[in-house]
């Protein structure tokens, strides 16, 4: 494995007893990119990140992170990576400033530089007014800014962010992502896990994980362009009736209601899907407008996780 990628993993696997939390995941993550892990609860995002940090032993497979082989050389990696844990892991009974100073000290940053960095980060993440506030008394968004400040204090080359915006309002989320792009521009590689589609869409590239396996990978636009299914939107007065009519078509893989519309994923095998759907609805006596639309990431997500579900059932 070379240094061409910030992270390379081959067959990375982690089992907890009978459960395979991460199942033969291969990754090649380039430098200075924002790379996303998208997947539902329990799909193995945190476990994969922990293995890549050297915090969990892989049951199988190997990974190279920043040219260091994991977990053997994990200690050498420590000062080069930053890790923002899913659960807030700074000290709640220390103040914002004390937390950052402590982190600076354990990363052995010289005193003057450390003070400078702390000031920079307090400014950057709008925590200056809260420097004397106990971390435990801060709001979710403030904590997340503090955690990001702590994870980037030692200017790591590679940053792992495990669901960094799960407790954050949309505006703060936008701000947060702005700062991620700024870090990325300065050469930092960012690996971020999420289960928000809008966040996934912002990544340069992303991996969709499902039940431990990597089921799709690539830049978001490529993933949506290459979706195997046709996406139809159905508008009708009686959505309930429309829905039950659609349920009768075997090629319809999934239906989701979006306000006053139905969003349906149709198997690509079905010739002329819009016509078929229209006809079926008309036969059922449902008056409806059917329109083919571009697939979104959510459609990709449903499509790939569904395929795997069928495979594992058969």
């Amino acid at each position: 494995m070379s240094d061409a990628f910030a992270i390379e993993a081959k067959g990375l696997t982690r089992r907890f007893g009978d459960l395979t939390a991460v199942d033969h995941v291969d990754l090649s993550i380039p430098h200075a990119q924002i790379y996303g892990f998208l997947g539902p609860n329990g799909c193995g995002k945190s476990t994969t990140i922990r293995m890549l940090c050297g915090l969990l032993m892989p049951s199988d497979g190997a990974a190279t992170v920043l040219g260091l082989s994991i977990p053997r050389e994990a200690e050498k990696l420590r000062s080069k990576i930053g890790y923002m844990t899913q659960r807030f892991s700074l000290y709640e009974d220390l103040t914002v400033e004390e937390n950052l100073e402590f982190i600076g000290e354990v990363y052995s940053i010289a005193r003057r530089r450390r003070h400078e960095r702390v000031e920079e980060l307090l400014e950057l993440y709008r925590l200056r007014d809260r420097r004397q506030q106990f971390a435990g008394t801060m709001s979710g968004g403030q904590r997340q800014r503090l955690a990001l400040a702590a994870a980037t204090l030692h200017e790591p080359e590679l940053l792992f962010l495990d669901e960094p915006t799960s407790a954050v309002d949309p505006q703060s989320r936008r701000d947060f992502w702005e700062s991620l792009f700024a870090l990325c521009d300065s050469g930092t590689t960012v690996l971020v896990s999420t289960h928000y589609m809008d966040e996934a869409e912002r990544c340069h590239s992303l991996a969709i994980l499902d039940r431990g396996a990597l089921v799709a990978e690539g830049p978001p636009h490529k993933l949506t362009a290459e979706i195997a299914e046709t996406v139809l939107e159905v508008q009708a007065a009686d959505l309930r009736a429309a829905r039950s009519a659609l349920d009768g078509i075997s090629a319809v893989e999934s239906i989701a209601q979006l306000g006053s519309r139905l969003h349906a994923l149709i198997d690509a095998e079905l010739a002329d899907p819009a016509e078929t759907v229209k006809r079926t609805l008309a036969e059922a006596g449902v008056e409806a407008r059917v329109e083919q639309v571009e697939a979104g990431l959510e459609d990709v997500f449903v499509s790939v996780t569904r395929q795997r579900g069928e495979e594992s059932r058969s």
Partner: peptide
């Protein structure tokens, strides 16, 4: 218990 350890063991300490 408080989750601090996951952060701490990821530092060079």
């Amino acid at each position: 218990e408080r989750g601090n350890l996951e952060l701490l063991i990821n530092t060079p300490v």
